[in-house]
Each structure stands twice: as C-alpha cells, then as structure tokens.
C-alpha cells in the first residue's frame, strides 16, 4: 500500500540525505575506495596498476563487509529515537497514518539513500574500470554492486529493529556497535572455533546453514560464487558448498533477513508506542 503520507515521509528522509550531502559523500567514498583498491590492490606484491576485475571484487568484498553494515546500521539506528526526542513521533502517531505506513515511509527513504549512494559510488568507479579492463567481467561487477546493496538493505532493516527496541541514543549506539562487531567478526570467530573444536568433522551442510544465519557471510558467499578463483581472498576457498548453495537461495535468505526485522519492528513498534 503506497499512500501519499508514506511517500511524503520517504521523500523527506531521502531529501535530508541528499541535502546534507550524505549520499554524495558516501558515493564518492565508494568510488575512490574502488579505484584505489583496483589500482593499488597488488602493491603488497610490488605491483601497481589496474588488476583483473575478479581480484578487485575480492578485495572490495572483504572491505565492504565491514564498511556497509556499519554505514547502514548508523543510518537507521536512531530513526525512532530521533523522532521521539524531537517530539514529532506523537505528531505522526496522531495523524491518520498507520504504523505500517510510517515505518515503510522511513524505510523506503533510507533504502533509496543507501542504494543510490552504493549504486552511484560503485557504478561510477565501475565505468572507469570497464574502460581500463574491458567488459569481460562486467557481470561479476554488477552482481557485486547488487549484493552490496542487498547487504546494506539487510543491515538497514536490522537498524530499524534496534531503533524500535531502544529509546535512548546512547544505547542505540552501543547496540549498533555490538551488532556490527557480532556479524562482521565475532560470528565468524565462533564458526571457526566450532570447526576447530570439532576438528573439522562438522558437515558442510551445517557450516552452510551457519553461514546463512549471518548476512555478512551470505554476502561473502554470493561474491565467492561469482568470482571463483579469487575467492581465496575471501577466506572461503577451502569451503566446499553443497549444491543447493546457489545465488537464488542466498538471495531468498537475504530477502528474509530484510523482511523479518522489519516485520518485527512493526509489531514491536505497535506494542511499545501505540499501546
């Protein structure tokens, strides 16, 4: 259901991010980041210059896994607390606007801000890379951009849940940092720990399941499946995935990672603010 009120909220969120130059700064950051990695990525081996696209994607992936989640989490984490502190939350709630429209409006606005900056940043640098490297691996790069956008949207959705769960800005920040740390570092350490304690006897099916429980690992796996030999950079080369671990399944799980926190946010918001 797209109502004018929902579009108005989404428009305001996007306009705020455009006016504050958030979108352009992030897009520029992504673009510069990509070109630097593409050019200097092989510097440790004493080589500079544009490398193969696959190698660039592998390097970008390992950095994006840290960068995009924190960006998305901070983007949406304070969305409810801010409205509450400003006193505007009661204005929204007293308007002929449903909770669904309110949350959806906020989400779509930030969704467009985040995906636009990701698309613009990696898109502009992608054009430069294609002029240097040709269109041979364009498909992998496009998939990398899509996967990066999906990763961002997943963490944006999680940030909405954080925002609904915690009233105070300071708590929101603390939980945001913890969630980021958990999904980008701690979770994988846990999986590695499990593999070590079980001496690697744990089945690949279980490992795959565990990877699907972490959106960052889903992102890594999706990029791994598209770049093949350079996946060693992602630390996944030694993993033999079961045949069902295909992009369609991973995108399906990603979709659930987007939808479930949003649905939970909706119900918790209703319970907390309209009860």
């Amino acid at each position: 259901m797209y109502t004018d009120a929902m579009i108005a909220i989404a428009h305001k969120e996007l306009a705020d991010k455009l006016k504050s130059r958030w979108v352009i700064v992030i897009a520029l950051g992504f673009a510069v980041f990509t070109v630097v990695i593409a050019y200097f990525g092989g510097a440790t081996a004493g080589v500079t210059g544009f490398r193969r696209m696959d190698a660039t994607i592998a390097s970008l992936t390992s950095l994006v896994t840290y960068f995009i989640p924190i960006l998305a989490l901070t983007l949406g984490g304070g969305i409810i607390a801010d409205e509450r502190d400003r006193g505007t939350l009661d204005l929204f709630l007293s308007s002929p606007l449903s909770v669904g429209e309110f949350i959806a409006g906020k989400f779509w606005g930030l969704f467009f801000a985040l995906t636009l900056s990701t698309l613009a940043g990696f898109g502009i640098s992608g054009i430069l890379l294609i002029t240097k490297l040709g269109t041979g691996t364009l498909g992998s790069y496009i998939l990398f951009i899509i996967n990066s956008m999906v990763l961002g949207v997943i963490f944006l959705s999680i940030s909405f849940l954080i925002s609904v769960l915690f009233y105070e800005r300071s708590r929101v920040i603390a939980v945001t940092v913890f969630v980021w740390l958990f999904f980008t570092i701690l979770y994988d350490l846990g999986v590695i720990g499990l593999l070590v304690t079980t001496k690697g006897e744990i089945s690949t099916g279980i490992v795959s399941m565990l990877l699907m429980l972490n959106p960052v690992d889903i992102y890594r796996t999706l990029n791994f499946l598209s770049i093949g030999e350079f996946s060693v950079v992602l630390g996944l080369a030694s993993v033999e995935f079961p045949s069902y671990m295909r992009p369609v399944l991973l995108w399906g799980v990603s979709f659930l990672w987007i939808v479930l926190p949003l649905v939970l946010s909706y119900y918790l918001f209703k319970r907390r603010y309209v009860s």
Binding site: K12, D16, D85, R86, G87, T88, D90, L91, S94
Partner: peptide, 8 residues
C-alpha cells in the same frame, strides 16, 4: 498540538 515539538 503536543506540549513540546522541536520539528526539523
């Protein structure tokens, strides 16, 4: 008209 609204 709530008691306190800071707006944007």
């Amino acid at each position: 008209m709530p008691e306190r609204v800071a707006f944007y």
